[in-house]
């Protein structure tokens, strides 16, 4: 019975670890079925959005309301903890590198739709330590709420202010819960997902549907014949902070 304290701790610790690993057996069992996308799904190699600022002006509020309602975005009522997937802002804040003192009144007061740019070269994807933020096969920068640890590194990395953090339980602040989409819980980050869940069942993004005058064009950036590519070829478009090399995929016709 000559066993030192150190040896006891060593053997004991190893045994506890081994016992703790037992449940892994079940996890590795696997599922009998298989998976496939919905046959109705809208497909693209690289989703992108062109916003015609003049055409969208009257539908702005409706677009944001549709988005926030469908995605159970809460109205916290405190700007410091505000959660927004899309919002309205002005030229001097969205395009601050291009603003100058003699901007015409019309442009100065014009309302723009702001949302996640789903950057080709997204900083938030790069910094996320768990791949909770990732880019899916169709070029959409997605959030996996199941995996997010709430470190908020992505918020620091995003140069567009497109990300929101749930500082508190959002449920009490959702006016009417949409049962088709989950809410979020306190402690995770969220943002626009280009309505990946709607594209997957063949629907247009909510904001595109709500822009009755055709103010938002949505399509495949890698397809030269897509609506977005035609719009980009026909109009002069601008983007937010192109100098950072993030290659945003939301374009504005002004």
């Amino acid at each position: 019975m000559d066993i030192s304290r150190r040896k006891f701790l060593k053997v004991g610790g190893a045994s506890i670890l081994a016992l703790g690993a037992l449940p892994l057996r079940n996890v590795l069992a696997g599922t009998p079925g298989s998976y496939k996308p919905d046959s109705k799904a809208k497909k693209a190699k690289n989703w992108a959005m062109v916003i015609d600022v003049n055409k969208l002006e009257d539908d702005l509020e409706a677009c944001i309301a549709a988005c926030h309602k469908i995605h159970n975005v809460p109205d916290i009522g405190n700007p410091k903890e505000e959660i927004k997937w899309a919002w309205i802002d002005t030229y001097e804040h969205l395009f601050l590198d291009n603003k100058h003192d003699y901007l015409d009144e019309e442009m100065k007061n014009k309302k723009f739709l702001a949302l996640c740019n789903h950057c080709e070269n997204a900083a938030c994807v790069r910094v996320c330590p768990t791949k909770a933020t990732f880019k899916n096969a169709e070029g959409i920068v997605m959030m996996d709420f199941h995996r997010c640890i709430g470190c908020r590194y992505c918020i620091a990395a995003c140069p567009y202010g497109a990300r929101s953090f749930n500082f508190r339980d959002p449920r009490p602040y959702i006016e009417e819960i949409n049962p088709e989409f989950p809410t979020r819980m306190k402690g995770v980050v969220e943002k626009c997902n280009f309505c990946a869940e709607r594209l997957a069942v063949g629907l247009q993004p909510a904001c595109v549907e709500a822009s009755k005058n055709g103010g938002i064009i949505f399509g495949d950036l890698d397809d030269p014949n897509s609506e977005v590519r035609k719009a980009l070829a026909a109009h002069h478009t601008i983007q937010r902070k192109t100098n950072l090399g993030t290659q945003p995929k939301v374009f504005y016709i002004v």
Partner: peptide, 8 residues
């Protein structure tokens, strides 16, 4: 969420 498959 990650693979875009909706059908089991």
């Amino acid at each position: 969420v990650r693979e875009g498959n909706r059908i089991y």
